[in-house]
Design a protein around this nucleic acid. Sequence first.
DNA 1: GAAGGTAAACCGTCCGGACGGTACAGTCAA
DNA 2: TTGACTGTACCGTCCGGACGGTTTACCTTC
Lengths: 174, 174
Amino acid sequence: MPKPSAKERILDAYQDILIEHGIGAITLEAVAARAEVSKGGLLYHFGSKEALLQGLIDRVGHLGVTDIEEARAASEGVVRYYLRSSVTDVTQDKAMHRTTLAAMRLIGNEDAIDEAMRDYTQNWRTLLTEQIGDPMTADFVGVIGDGLYLRAMLGEDTSPLLDDFIELLARLGI
Amino acid sequence: MPKPSAKERILDAYQDILIEHGIGAITLEAVAARAEVSKGGLLYHFGSKEALLQGLIDRVGHLGVTDIEEARAASEGVVRYYLRSSVTDVTQDKAMHRTTLAAMRLIGNEDAIDEAMRDYTQNWRTLLTEQIGDPMTADFVGVIGDGLYLRAMLGEDTSPLLDDFIELLARLGI
DNA sequence: GAAGGTAAACCGTCCGGACGGTACAGTCAA
DNA sequence: TTGACTGTACCGTCCGGACGGTTTACCTTC
């Protein structure tokens, strides 16, 4: 695996610090240090803290689109794909999962993040509705995924719940 | 309704700012201004920003206990009480609901908050298991409540979902 | 009941440190 | 030569917290 470009590394560092220590630990110097870049180097790529945030939002947008595409094509089915990617699964370590977790740390603190996350959940809701048929049931599945994410944010390992939840949903004909 | 004591007003202001503008907007001066108290007055009651956080944690603890007690005694049943209090219901405006929403803004930023929230969800899980019997199904209901809270954090009005969700759970024999 | 005392409740200013951002001169690989 | 940085020095602002008052409520004693 080649070393990612500095810009990507900076964004990764931004995410990592958000996930591990939260928004309060985000300083330009801390992000730069984690990315193994000088402060000047960071500011070369992202002209301000605000630009760094925008970088994360863009990433949520891009990864969100490809995530939905992959889900649509997944052989296991959309619902199972959705729940699996909502669960903390150490073995997969998907890019979108980390990005989402990082973005969630900013919910309520940055309006632009709230909007990006609403868009993302809305896209999922659309796909789930398309797949399941009934919008109400689709919302139900959507909320379960969100709940799993919230638990992940609290540091809980939710992977043991996956199969049980899928079985319960199967009983509802999903 | 008499004017609450300064200490309560300060904690209310702290919550309000967290909910409306997030952790980044929390400064001693902002909280003091919102509570209509001087900065010195605030520091008289809470000796530091850390103490303010501890005040919120204590509140989560106290309200959490009474919340669980009320749920246990609720004529509508524990599950319905749980889901109803997870939903954004403008008409009720329960103290615990606001406190939880405020505390959620701090998840991942303050270890002590994470722990308090884990305790709170754990207490609910225990009660739900006791009520439903099967721990796996209880977790299922628990996660749905969490998902509703996450949506509330994103500013969504989740109250229309309540009855539908209860009906879906009824189909599972809950 | 006036005077005096006391402690809790509260006010407003000041200081030091942290942090975002600027500026710029130098390095180095392609 | 140009783009991608490094490293250092610096500035202005913001914020936490310390601190030295001041007001209010409530005794107590003459």
